[in-house]
């Protein structure tokens, strides 16, 4: 089966993501009292192997938080939030916690959950859907655990639609990458939703 999105579908999905990103960033900016710099998201089709290769070569020291999402019409997937190590200590300030009030792990999980759910909630509204989430999980900062998790991922599916969104919070020069993975079984479902929107135009 061909999982690729055609040009119109890709364009439509990108615009939906853009709008979701914009509204989510606005909410975030108000909540965190800062400004979020938006860039154009990228959408690709990846194989399990390709994903672990692309993530593992980025940085030797990084942390990742994983959170599953699922909505109606078979829209589901997993959000990965990828952080460079040096950014971790800025998150506590950003979230408005006192030092020592929560550990770096908790901060990472908190900010990840906020980024993922604000974005996906807006996205869901646009496609007249509603999302449920699993609890976010920190995939240890140790390289071993990370590749184990990626291996597990690629065991569950061969191909996935991968959406990369970059969050840059300017006041804190904090940077993180949100990677949404929609496994092959759900790609058809998202295509159906996209086609319905395209028909309206």
């Amino acid at each position: 089966m061909a999982y690729e999105l055609n040009e119109d579908q890709q364009d439509c999905l990108q615009e939906l993501i853009n709008v979701a990103m914009g509204q989510a960033s606005d909410q975030l900016a108000r909540y965190l009292d800062t400004f979020v710099f938006l860039t154009v998201p990228s959408i690709d089709l990846v194989s399990g192997k390709g994903l672990s290769d692309s993530l593992e070569t980025t940085e030797e020291s990084m942390a990742m938080v994983s959170q599953g999402f699922f909505g109606y019409e078979g829209i589901r997937g997993e959000a990965l939030l990828v952080y460079k190590h040096e950014d971790s200590d800025r998150i506590g300030d950003l979230l408005g916690y006192e030092p020592d009030e929560l550990s770096v792990e908790e901060q990472l999980i908190d900010i990840s959950s906020i980024l993922t759910t604000t974005f996906l909630n807006v996205f869901a509204t646009q496609i007249e859907n509603q999302m449920s989430y699993s609890a976010p999980k920190l995939i240890s900062e140790m390289q071993g655990k990370l590749s184990e998790h990626l291996k597990q991922l690629s065991f569950d599916w061969d191909m996935a639609l991968k959406v990369n969104i970059n969050y840059q919070v300017t006041d804190y020069s904090f940077n993180c990458e949100m990677v949404l993975l929609i496994p092959e079984a759900a790609i058809e479902n998202i295509k159906t939703v996209i086609d319905r929107i395209l028909e309206e135009y």
Binding site: M21, G22, D26, A29, F35
Partner: peptide
Amino acid sequence: ISADIQPEM
């Protein structure tokens, strides 16, 4: 006409 609706923008 933009999605980036942050007040600062």
